[in-house]
Design a protein around this nucleic acid. Structure first.
Lengths: 130, 130
DNA sequence: CATTTGTTGATAATCAAGAATCATGTATCG
DNA sequence: CGATACATGATTCTTGATTATCAACAAATG
């Protein structure tokens, strides 16, 4: 169970590292396939599991029924989800005073903030103006 | 397709209306079953669909693989999710300046904020102190 | 009361995500 | 080179959530 650094593994890690935000398993497959064309989805899931257990990768859920993965070394940040193309982007910065929102008695450990809208690319190709 | 107000329908609506936060279909079934013991899960899903189409109910996703439903007439608010018991609570109030977090070029339409931690009930019965 | 139309509850069908299986492949080490 | 142990990729299986089906029902209408 020694965890070898195979090309598949590094391709998967690189895909996440180079992405502007968290990726879905299928997206990881697509990106890493450019490096390792024979890559299978099973390996993606397998490596994601290993990487999660190793603490190098974390799952985040934006929207409903949506699980994406991101490297854990990016510090505290939030996300933007484009409603048009579905891509997720990291958003740095965090409004303060969040813990104070909860009524007394609630023990706040953490929080997640997700912005929804249109990414620069989708906003530019304005489909509204049809 | 006239949408009759059956006891099942009103029991389902009442369950959501009386809840402190969004409910999962199974939770709705459990609560509404107190009023209509024969209630089936199929009716819950059916009514949720109708209510969504009627704009009276909205689906929200907290955490991963998690869909809950809430009445739409509660105005802008956020949520708290207890990591121990899994119950969700509405949180009123909203930190300002959220739209400014996004880098230029992003078109922000909306946002969701979820707090994680322990609810008053779970925080009191401190299992940490074992 | 009889008819019509929408509703219910039990259950089967569907679907997708993720896990397990297994033969093949590939480093590593002797 | 040959043996060993882990990794891969194709595929199948499992699981849980949601949907569709359908016979039994109930409200509204004549």
């Amino acid at each position: 169970m020694t965890t070898r650094l195979t090309i598949q593994r590094s391709a998967i890690i690189d895909a996440m590292r180079d992405a502007p935000g968290p990726l879905r398993p299928q997206e990881i497959l697509g990106l890493a396939s450019r490096v390792v064309p024979t890559l299978g989805i099973a390996t993606v899931y397998r490596q994601l599991k290993h990487l999660q257990e190793a603490g190098e990768v974390r799952a985040v859920g934006l929207g409903r029924n949506d699980v994406r993965y991101e490297p854990t070394d990016r510090g505290h940040h939030h996300h933007f989800l484009c409603r048009e193309c579905g891509e997720a982007f990291d958003v740095h910065g965090c409004p303060g005073g969040i813990a104070e929102l909860a009524p007394p008695g609630f023990d706040i450990e953490d929080h997640e903030l997700t912005l929804f809208g249109r990414c620069p690319e989708c906003a530019t190709s304005d489909k509204k103006a049809t």
